[in-house]
Amino acid sequence: MTHPPILGTLESALYTDDLAAAEAFYGGLIGLPVLTRAGDRHIFFRVGEGVLLVFNRCETVKPSNNTALPVPPHGTSGQGHYCFAVPPETLDLWRQRMEGAGVEIEADFHWPNGARSVYVRDPAGNSIEFADPAIWA
């Protein structure tokens, strides 16, 4: 069976109960440009060619009232994961930036192939990874 082509990941979603804290973390500390914010429902950030969607988990489970944008209700509970691909030579800078902002480094290690990852938690408890893209080489 032949499958239709997939170009890659266009967007990924994380969920929070505090969009202001998410905006301070992703927009302020990490420096991602905000694409759009819709009140207390969501905030979207540009990440390279893709988009990080951060939703208020209490709002996205509600059916949409906007017939022009009939996005189905969605959400999750618990902690999600998101990984930023970063140049390997910047991992120490990311670690220092996080520590300087009082963000605990949860893990910092080298994978069996020698690539490195640094893990932190965002204000909602999601696992956020900064990694050398070679982890998947």
Score class of each variant (00 low, 15 high):
P33L: 13
N65Q: 15
G39Q: 13
A22N: 07
Y15W: 08
G80L: 11
N56I: 12
K62G: 10
W111T: 07
G31P: 04
G27E: 06
R46T: 11
L19S: 03
I43C: 11
D18W: 09
N66R: 14
G80P: 06
T90N: 05
C58P: 00
P5Q: 11
L29F: 10
F109Y: 04
A38H: 10
V103H: 04
Y15G: 02
T60S: 15
S64W: 08
A22P: 05
W111R: 14
Q96E: 14
R46M: 09
L93T: 15
V61D: 01
V103T: 13
E11S: 07
T16R: 11
E49F: 12
V118H: 00
A21F: 13
L32W: 06
R41Y: 10
V54W: 03
E89M: 10
T16M: 09
G8D: 08
P88T: 00
R41T: 09
G27K: 07
P63D: 06
S127A: 07
L53A: 03
V54D: 04
G31S: 10
Q96R: 12
P4K: 08
L29K: 11
P73K: 13
A134I: 05
P4L: 04
P123T: 08
N56T: 08
I30L: 14
P70H: 14
E49C: 05
T9M: 15
A107C: 01
